[in-house]
Design a protein around this nucleic acid. Structure first.
Ligand SMILES: NC(=O)c1ccc[n+]([C@@H]2O[C@H](COP(=O)([O-])OP(=O)(O)OC[C@H]3O[C@@H](n4cnc5c(N)ncnc54)[C@H](O)[C@@H]3O)[C@@H](O)[C@H]2O)c1
Ligand SMILES: NC(=O)c1ccc[n+]([C@@H]2O[C@H](COP(=O)([O-])OP(=O)(O)OC[C@H]3O[C@@H](n4cnc5c(N)ncnc54)[C@H](O)[C@@H]3O)[C@@H](O)[C@H]2O)c1
Lengths: 248, 248
DNA sequence: CCGAAATCGTGCCATATTTCACAATTATCC
DNA sequence: GGATAATTGTGAAATATGGCACGATTTCGG
């Protein structure tokens, strides 16, 4: 396997981009806004490429499960809905994984990209907010097996203290302490909007460096923290632009 | 106000894009796969610009509600986390809304962009899937007031027939019929992955032209249908790339 | 009413991203 | 075994996106 895989990832650290400055706000797909790694300075790999990798893994794994042993960039591209050249280019940032005349081994490539993304381990995640959304996230099995909710926080005195599986919902005051103690690097923010920045700050103080933000708040985070936005409302609001009364 | 606002939006229709050529996301049948409209051909406005507009509206409305009457591109940029030039450029696609020396009227600009996005009306939405996620979406107030769940579908015989507010959950077989009858243009897909394409096809057959896809399935849709993906798992999986054991 | 300060809109340039297209390599078939 | 077909990885070109910087215009304080 080529270079990146399990090598020391320190060189990948998102380029410095402080608070408000240069951070672009929406990715190509529809996922949203805010501080994601700038994509060039480090000589690193463009974030837009990184964001496509999960789809590759997903599709390759699906094919592998179906018993398909190898796949060409062209066929993979048709499955995913991108161009074959893009897939080949994306992969070329990391090494050479294909075989001319044959294509890529589905299983091998899925495994390789998983390692590149560090998905070959389980990550503990801190969940803040245990309201409707927070509960839904806690119950959602789709994050498994790479991600496991290891701590839950809520400010409400009714909710804090509540049990979920083997976890007790903790008060927000303990976020920093617990995130640090459990070495949690990833946070999910599902609190009411007014509390989002505070909760993010506490998580970061405890050592979190990746935040999944379900609120519409634009989070201010240091340059070494990655934030991804989940913004279904924004997605809907941008689709209506294209709607027309009559149609085809 | 400038041109676009409530003018006939037919010219905005995503360019019909045949085959794989100009459009990055087309499959063999000329069906655009997955999200966003092609962004150039029509001489139309780049989709990436459209996708930023909801954030502008949101922020401007917030400021207006706080009693801020006008805001400069610079200040707005600081709130949102983009550059002032980008905001000015984005707006310039639609007209001239600012006043030199002063900035933009928060209320006016929020209203103008809302009209551009056609958010100055209520859109009926069809929701497919009434499991955990579907229920959460149905209860979620964040889509209001621009979007209203007007029909709910589920294949399960237990769920179909169930009531939600004044709605009865309907079987998937009725999607096309009901979507057509109620002139619904927007669908939300929250069914199990295996059913996503089928449900999408039925909605489109009934006249839906915008789909919010919560599943990980890559939907095949005609070129005149916009799809946006909500993919929190992918977002998480791409953030782990940047995580490092030690940090800073 | 004046000069300084603020701010927009945009031409033009810089950067980022995608795509083309082809040499090199490997597979396949007879 | 040799000819043909398939397919990769990548330099170079093409597009798309972002940002600088400045003329033009408006505001503002006195
Ligand atoms: N992106 C999405 O798909 C999506 C969907 C639904 C809701 N949301 C957003 O997620 C957030 C939560 O939505 P919800 O429907 O779960 O609301 P909710 O009211 O059910 O839950 C909010 C929770 O946050 C808790 N909370 C309030 N202040 C807190 C604080 N300082 N620290 C920790 N917890 C605190 C409350 O006690 C409550 O449990 C909102 O911002 C909402 O807009 C996003
Ligand atoms: N993007 C996200 O944030 C997110 C979060 C949770 C779940 N999901 C995804 O959303 C989907 C639903 O998740 P869930 O947790 O609600 O699962 P669920 O099992 O609770 O609900 C799925 C629902 O789909 C219904 N269904 C199955 N086949 C159908 C068909 N042919 N037509 C209509 N309805 C059908 C089922 O009856 C059930 O009610 C899954 O694909 C899941 O991976 C996405």
């Amino acid at each position: 396997m080529a270079t990146v895989g399990e090598s020391n990832p320190s060189h990948r650290q998102p380029a410095a981009e402080t608070g408000t400055s240069a951070a672009p706000l929406a990715d190509r797909n529809g996922n949203r806004v805010s501080s994601r790694p700038s994509n060039l300075v480090t000589g690193g790999i463009p974030d837009i490429v990184i964001r496509r990798l999960p789809v590759y893994v997903r599709t390759l794994s699906l094919l592998a499960d179906r018993g398909v042993e190898s796949v060409s960039s062209d066929e993979l591209a048709r499955h995913i809905g991108v161009t074959a050249a893009q897939i080949r280019r994306d992969l070329s940032y990391f090494g050479k994984f294909g075989k001319q005349g044959k294509g890529y081994s589905t299983e091998l490539l899925a495994g390789t990209i998983s390692r590149i993304l560090q998905l070959d381990r389980q990550w503990d995640v801190a969940l803040a907010g245990f309201g409707n959304l927070g509960r839904a996230i806690a119950h959602y099995r789709g994050f498994l097996p790479a991600f496991r909710v290891a701590a839950i926080f809520d400010s409400s005195s009714e909710r804090s203290g509540e049990r979920f599986n083997e976890l007790t919902v903790q008060p927000v005051e303990r976020i920093t302490e617990i995130v640090a103690a459990e070495k949690i690097r990833i946070g999910i923010i599902a609190v009411r909007t007014g509390a989002a920045q505070d909760v993010a700050d506490r998580m970061i103080a405890g050592g979190a460096r990746a935040l999944l933000n379900y609120t519409t708040v634009v989070l201010r985070v240091p340059a070494n923290v990655t934030v991804r936005e989940i913004d279904p409302v924004g997605a809907m609001q941008s689709m209506t632009y294209y709607l027309d009364e009559r149609d085809d």
